[in-house]
Design a protein around this nucleic acid. Structure first.
Length: 410
DNA sequence: GACCCGTGGGA
DNA sequence: TTCCCAAGGGT
């Protein structure tokens, strides 16, 4: 049905001209877009919601208005600004990509898919998106939205991810020769607002007359997906080592892997058979640390491949140095490259710093030490290194502390 | 293809 | 509560 394929482009572009979302990284209709802004937004939007990206996009653009500014920045500044957004390899690749643009491409983005694809952090989707949106190239842009829309439009019943080649081919057939960038964003807007994963709003859809799934009544069942195994549980102990001057001990994660390059509180490895009752094992580098360990609560955190329970211990010490660690004032934690997981831990650090530890002086009836730390997690997010970034990030309240303990629990 | 890699919001 | 999912990329 090649006629149908030709109708999709005009129908969708017409809809896009009337209903496109207004987003900070989008240029005005018809205006040229800044490749740097397009690239930055595309990297941030990988597996990340528009709402989560907005404040980070604004902060980055304010701090580093051009790719040269970004390339000149220390990686750690970028990690600090990225903290909380997740998938931190994106930030490392962002930095590497900016440097490659400056060092190998004269400070300009390659205007074609092949050139873009060779840069760190730019895969098939992002290369196509930048080529189409920023450079007006005809490219087949396929992300999760596009896959869903194509699966429904063409009633592809083969489950993902096996159906990918078929869905890419469908997008290729439907992509017009001109306004490719607008078309790609139109499909994504449609997927985000109408052709949604659950209960699609077909009555509002500009493609309703062209949609095979709708015709067959399959729209709610597509795309099919192979189901995923549930995530395992892991646990560990994390230590807030604090001095009387209000400093706590932190260290950097290894440069690659989980939370690579980010700041953390020293902790044991996170294992599947962590025993909370067991005496807390000192992390590598803290072997000389002496008790008493004061259990101050637990932190729950969901990650992509496992769920983590961290048992938090506070330890007072006068030792001046620990292998691979550094001291930092509790008040300065907000400016650190702390991932959200560690910001949850950081909540327990506040109030531990005074000479008369509040832990020893606030008797509470509650026998439980475990504290709920859930959705209202720590927005201890940072002011920005260079600019004074938008102050939508700020520390909130302190967690309530459980019963006081002054004796070693281990 | 299979895994790894974060986080927050909605149903 | 639990599960799903969001403008994916790297290995």
């Amino acid at each position: 049905m090649p006629d149908r394929d030709l109708e999709v482009g005009p129908a969708l572009l017409d809809w896009y001209d009337r209903h496109r979302r207004v987003l900070p990284w989008r240029s005005a209709p018809g205006a040229a877009s800044d490749p740097y802004a397009v690239w930055l937004s595309e990297i941030m939007l990988q597996q990340t919601t528009v709402a989560a990206v907005k404040p980070y996009f604004a902060a980055f653009l304010a701090a580093w208005p051009t790719v040269r500014d970004l390339a000149a920045a220390p990686l750690d500044d970028i990690l600090k600004a990225w903290a909380g957004l997740g998938y931190y390899s994106r930030a490392r690749n962002l930095h590497a990509c900016a440097r490659a643009i400056v060092d190998q491409h004269g400070g300009r983005f390659p205007p074609d898919e092949v050139g873009l694809r060779s840069l760190p952090g730019i895969g098939p989707y992002t290369a196509a998106a930048i080529a189409a949106i920023a450079f007006g190239q005809r490219a087949v842009v396929v992300d999760g939205n596009v896959e869903r829309v194509m699966a429904r439009l063409c009633a592809v019943e083969e489950p993902l991810p096996a159906a990918r080649p078929r869905l890419h081919a469908a997008m290729n057939r439907v992509t017009p020769q001109s306004r490719t960038g607008d078309f790609a964003q139109a499909v994504m807007d449609l997927g985000a607002t109408i052709c949604t994963p659950r209960s699609p709003a077909c009555v509002l859809c500009p493609l309703i007359a062209l949609c095979d799934a709708r015709r067959l009544g399959l729209q709610a069942d597509l795309p099919r997906k192979s189901k995923k195994a549930k995530v395992p549980q892991r646990g560990g102990a994390v230590f807030i080592v604090h001095r009387s001057d209000g400093c706590v001990l932190v260290r950097q994660r290894p440069p690659e892997g989980l939370f690579g390059g980010m700041t953390e509180f020293p902790s044991t490895p996170w294992t599947e058979q962590h025993d909370a009752e067991h005496s807390p094992t000192r992390p590598v580098g803290l072997e000389k640390l002496e008790g008493p360990f004061v259990p101050v609560g637990t932190v729950e955190h969901g990650l992509t491949h496992f769920h983590l329970t961290l048992h938090v211990y506070a330890i007072r010490t006068d030792r001046q140095s620990f292998e691979g660690c550094r001291w930092i004032a509790v008040d300065a934690l907000a400016g650190e490259a702390l991932p959200t997981l560690m910001r949850k831990v950081a909540r327990f650090a506040q109030g531990l710093n005074s000479e008369t530890s509040t832990l020893a002086n606030t008797p509470e009836p509650e026998p439980q030490i475990t504290l709920p730390v859930q959705s209202d997690c720590p927005k201890i997010n940072l002011p920005h290194p260079k600019s004074q970034a938008p102050n939508e990030f700020r520390t909130r309240h302190m967690p309530q502390r459980g019963r006081s303990r002054t004796t070693p629990s281990a």
